[in-house]
Structures are given as C-alpha cells and as structure tokens.
Computed example of a mutant assay.
Amino acid sequence: MKNALITAATKGIGRAITIALAKEGINVAVCARGEKDLADLKAELFTINPNMKIFTAATDVSVKAGILKFAADAEKELGAINIIVNNAGIYEPFSILDDGEDTFQKSINTNLAPAYELYRYFGKKMIAAGEGHIFNICSVASLNPVVEAGTYSVTKFALFGLTKVMRLELQAHNVKVTAVIPGSTLTSSWDGVAVDKNVMVLPEDIASAVVNIYKLSPGANVDEIVIKPVNGQV
C-alpha cells in the first residue's frame, strides 16, 4: 500500500482529499491543530477502509519544528511517504497596506514554509526511491492577485513558484509535482456567508482531480490544473 501525507486534513479540501485517498486504499498521515477533529476524521476513515493505516498528529504547521516532527513521525509510523498534499493555508482578507504587523510572517509560515520544509525533508528520499507525487494546493490568486487579499496573493504566487522549481528539480527522477489551482471553493472560509453551492467548486471536485491525476500512467503528469466555478469566481 502507498502512504500519503496531508496537511490541514480535517476540513475542506484537505479532508476531501484524505477521504478520497482512503477510498483508493492508501494509508494516510494527517495533521491539523484540533485533536478532536483528528479523532473524528480517523474514526470516519476506518469506516471507509478498516484495514488502512492512519497516523494523526495535532500540529501547528507554521512552526518549523512542528512540521518536521510530523514528517519524521509519519515516516516512522507508515514507512516511506509516496504522496504529499500541501494543503495548509490561511486567508487574510486585507490589502497589504491594512495588514497587521505579523500578517506577512504568519502568512509565509503557513502558506509557503510547510511545503518548502516537507520538500526539503522528503525530496531526496523520493529521488532515491525513483517515484513519488507532490501536490501543492495553490489558488487562482497564484495567477491573478486578489487586491483585497494582498499578502495571501503574494504567498500563493510564491507557492506556485516553488511548485515549478520542485518539478524541475524532480522530473528527471520520475517524481511528479502538480500545482492544484482552485477557484471559489465551498470550504469553511465561507461560513456565515450566504452562497449557493451550485455556483461553487466543491472540495470533492478538487479531491477527484487529485486522485485521477495520481492514477495517471507513470510517464504522464499534470503540471498544473485550474478548477473554477463554471459561471466565474464568486
């Protein structure tokens, strides 16, 4: 069985991807901040696949020591990690001029640094194995800045750039890297806002894309995939 590591896995896109991978018979190492949410997810996953291995860790991925401990513990519990899904992120709905004093560093530490650190930790191991697939959950803000979320846009541009560098460094070693670029997706970030789910991308849409990209033949890769609402951004 293959082993996947997913950050921010208890809600939204991360949760949907975790469930989709479990349905494919893939073991998972998942992290989030909440112990109860992780326990609930673990119980749900066992109902889907009672024979799978699941490692959970309450982790603040914005702290370098935390993300590296999660990586090491996941590897110890499951064995070699074959799939990485960098899903952690925060959205601050402010222009850069209105940011708080800590917004930039907090956004870098959450939206960019975990993907960088996990790449540094697992990249050479995937090269040695001659296989692996890294999915970075970017955003349409990686392509076109959102003026009311300036620092978020900057960090997502950076994540998209990191994804391209990772791909170039790994492609000669049969390790795949994909940028997943969602538009308006119905996650908890929309809580309290009256929206019609029929005009939104659903987390399950993103999960379906990730699984199908992963299942491509060994010689094929999707470098990047943009998934937006059919009627345009909400």
Rank of each mutant, 00 (worst) to 15 (best):
L159K: 07
L159Q: 09
L159E: 12
L159W: 06
F160E: 13
F160Q: 14
F160R: 15
F160H: 15
F160D: 13
F160T: 14
G161E: 05
G161H: 04
G161Y: 01
G161S: 11
L162G: 06
L162P: 03
L162I: 11
T163N: 11
T163A: 12
K164R: 10
K164N: 15
K164G: 07
V165E: 08
V165P: 02
V165A: 09
M166Q: 13
M166W: 06
R167Q: 15
R167Y: 15
R167P: 10
L168S: 13
E169D: 15
E169Q: 15
E169R: 13
E169A: 14
L170D: 11
Q171W: 05
Q171K: 11
A172I: 05
A172E: 14
H173I: 11
N174K: 12
N174F: 05
N174S: 09
N174G: 02
V175S: 06
V175P: 01
K176E: 05
K176S: 06
K176T: 02
V177Y: 00
V177T: 04
V177D: 02
V177R: 04
T178V: 04
V180L: 00
V180K: 01
I181L: 08
I181F: 02
I181S: 08
P182S: 08
P182G: 06
G183L: 03
G183I: 07
G183D: 00
S184P: 07
S184I: 09
S184V: 08
T185R: 02
T185Q: 01
L186F: 09
L186W: 03
L186K: 01
L186V: 03
L186N: 04
T187P: 00
T187C: 02
T187V: 03
S188E: 12
S188R: 13
S189M: 13
S189L: 14
W190M: 07
W190T: 05
W190N: 07
D191N: 09
D191V: 03
D191Y: 11
D191L: 10
V193W: 14
V193N: 14
V193F: 11
V193R: 15
A194Y: 12
V195K: 13
V195Q: 09
V195T: 10
V195M: 13
K197C: 00
K197L: 02
K197W: 00
N198C: 08
N198R: 10
N198I: 04
V199C: 04
V199L: 01
V199P: 01
V201T: 00
L202N: 03
L202M: 06
P203I: 00
P203D: 05
E204N: 03
D205F: 04
D205R: 00
I206C: 04
I206L: 09
A207Y: 01
A207M: 13
A207K: 02
S208R: 12
S208N: 15
S208E: 14
A209D: 06
A209C: 13
A209L: 13
A209H: 00
A209T: 05
